[in-house]
Write a protein that binds this DNA or RNA. Sequence first.
DNA 1: GCACTCGATATTGTCAACAATAAGTCCGTA
DNA 2: TACGGACTTATTGTTGACAATATCGAGTGC
Lengths: 231, 231
Amino acid sequence: MKTESLSNRVSKTSSASTTLADNVFNQIRTAIVKGELIPGSKVNEPQLSRQYGISRGPLREAIRRLEGCKLVEITPHIGANVISLNRSQTIEIYEIREALESLACRLAAEKSTPKDCHKLRELLTAHEKQIQSENGQLYYQKEGDLDFHYLIIQLSGNARLFTILCEELYHLLRLYRVQTSSKPSRPERAFHEHHQIVDAIENKDAELAALLMRRHISNARKTLINQLDIE
Amino acid sequence: MKTESLSNRVSKTSSASTTLADNVFNQIRTAIVKGELIPGSKVNEPQLSRQYGISRGPLREAIRRLEGCKLVEITPHIGANVISLNRSQTIEIYEIREALESLACRLAAEKSTPKDCHKLRELLTAHEKQIQSENGQLYYQKEGDLDFHYLIIQLSGNARLFTILCEELYHLLRLYRVQTSSKPSRPERAFHEHHQIVDAIENKDAELAALLMRRHISNARKTLINQLDIE
DNA sequence: GCACTCGATATTGTCAACAATAAGTCCGTA
DNA sequence: TACGGACTTATTGTTGACAATATCGAGTGC
């Protein structure tokens, strides 16, 4: 209440939630994903409770939710630390993504209506225009890539799949990008792959769609590994 | 402290944890998975805090962890309810299992040492003896099936994969079995499939291992669907 | 008899204080 | 100077009380 000072407005997301715990959960989560809370650092309860102007009760509930999302690690009697992903852990996540998004793509191809396909096409052409007007490099950085993947996962119709990918793994990957300040840079290639994937979905070729998505993410993984090897 | 009466000992798991919240989290989780807390029912905080002899603070943290495992659903200002899986939600989980365990199997085939393969063989032969001595039907019910899958996931070496499958999805499936009191009944067929999988892993044929595992779980899914259609 | 409102009760959300554990500091000794 | 131990401080764990919201039931009007 009193110390609304400088760092209180960490993010704009959902300032008016129904409960303080959920509210501050969202705020801290975006703070972590944006890199404002640096990976590996300690999550100090008294400090955060002052910062957000709430008591430690709901704050601890929020931290427990963050633990569930695997964004912090809690050690009993010591406290929580913001997760820090190393090289192999990131590769692990990409392996899982490969399997799950391949599945999502197959399901999407099976279930998608012409209207859905139209939305996918629209998304791609919108991104294409953006690329042309902004000289290409911003496709990934503006997360147009993620938009595309989000939509396919939604089209899969598997709600739990959406939760695992979009509510858990993607946040972790976003964190990693901030952590290593890595700029994914293979826009035109990825863009071509995206078009192939939509083609397969439109043709209702589920197996091909799954294969293409798997290869798409596998390529991203290999790019990441090479990038890590260089550094 | 005072009301240790009848329903206090809900489970035997981990009575001496380091913190009350973690302790009661484990207890409630097993209670849910065992069906002692029936799916869909309300999670009453005052009642549970009396039952476990703790205050509502750590209890609420435990509930938030359960929310993270997707074992309860929390509605603001209303409370938590034990999750209840319907038919389609269960199929969703099986779809995810199919993708993830297929991945696990491929990784296991790539990384497994001869010693690992030996352990797998031992597990299978041990189960085989058990089947012969107990007339078959108990293989699944004693969770020998899960032992097998657990071991392969461990051999995959992907820690996050292990977490997602063994710490989250499996608990949900176990809950569903209790909920519908369904007894998986295709022991000899599944057993044959298990043997094939180990063969592939031993031969370092990662693609085949992945394929077989995917089919193995796909069969289980189809069996489940048929079973549900009958009822 | 039915629907609606209002009040009583129970449950959830939040807080501030206390207890227990860990971390840091200062001091003495070898 | 380096090491170890007691003391101090800070942080986490836990509790009970209070506030806010939702649920249930009785009573009233139609």
